[in-house]
Design a protein around this nucleic acid. Structure first.
Length: 274
DNA sequence: AGACCCCTGGAC
DNA sequence: GTCCAGGGGTCT
């Protein structure tokens, strides 16, 4: 699934196609794609028709369409969600769950093979009752190193599971957790409270570096991810550990180790990461 | 911290 | 068939 760089890439691609457009209609092909207070087709349709999109943004791994009156629509793509804009001739695909029709005749498709993703309408009122939203942590690329280090201070548990915790810092998933920890020379199973502030500062630098480099490559395409134009990203060609279990460490040439950390497959180098 | 759960599809 | 997958929620 899309992590921060992938959602950022999708937002960049959708922006010119959606900004200043009006939503004239919606087609719900899978009812459970709707989340939140407007989670029935009737409520959703009634609330979304006629809204104009003033901006396309991202918060953590959520893609946001902001309307003009404090309302908005949030998409969580989870593992296999995709967003594309097509012209009116494009038929719904096998995994299309939601279609928004625009005032220029184009249509925004939300496709999601595994049905984990959702679309959630929100208003400034309802946003405060959405606990996932309320709990979201720091944006890593906006946070100062001091605030990043402070956010993890006093937290217990393995560092990788804390990196995956969206309540502390947002946007990091399984790929970028492993890649950042390798760059920082930190084992994924290290207890976070055993790391020095200097090591945590290094980790912040590595998190930012890997996220920025991935954004520059339009994200990582392993299986399902495609940007808003249907194109694959290229950052998978630059992975140092993710998906390379059993291959040689690029630094020390020893074989990379695979483990299960925080319930996720984890690849790291036992020599280079301490 | 772990074990499930939500689902589907691809690799083997 | 079995196992795996860019996420996150809940329950023990």
């Amino acid at each position: 699934m899309p992590e921060l760089p992938e959602v950022e890439t999708i937002a960049s691609g959708l922006r010119p196609q959606l900004e200043a457009r009006c939503i004239t209609d919606a087609t719900i092909l899978y009812e459970r794609v709707l989340d939140g207070e407007w989670n029935t087709p009737a409520r959703f349709l009634d609330a979304v028709r006629g809204r104009s999109i003033v901006s396309v943004g991202r918060r953590g791994k959520l893609l946001l369409l902001q309307f003009d009156d404090g309302m908005g629509l949030a998409f969580h793509l989870k593992m296999t969600g995709r967003l594309f804009v097509y012209d009116s001739t494009e038929p719904a695909h096998k995994h299309t769950r939601l279609i928004l029709t625009l005032d220029n005749g184009m249509r925004l498709f939300f496709d999601d093979a595994r049905k984990f993703g959702y679309a959630r309408l929100f208003s400034s009122q309802t946003l405060c009752h959405w606990s996932f939203w309320q709990k979201l942590g720091l944006e890593p690329l906006c946070a100062s190193t001091e605030s990043f280090v402070a956010a993890y201070h006093g937290r217990r548990g393995r560092i990788k599971s804390l990196l995956l915790n969206q309540g502390i810092v947002v946007g990091i998933g399984n790929i970028y957790a492993d890649e950042a920890l390798f760059r920082a020379g930190i084992r994924p199973d290290r207890q976070a409270d055993s790391l020095s502030p200097e090591q945590m500062a290094t980790l912040h630098n590595c998190v930012c570096a890997v996220l920025r480099e991935s954004i520059a490559e339009c994200g990582s395409s392993i299986r399902d991810y495609r940007d808003a134009h249907g194109d694959a990203g290229a950052f998978q060609n630059f992975f140092r550990v993710y998906g390379r279990s059993g291959e040689q460490c690029i630094q020390c040439k020893r074989l990379l180790t695979t483990a299960r950390v925080a319930g996720r497959t984890t690849v790291f180098c036992e020599t280079c990461q301490l």
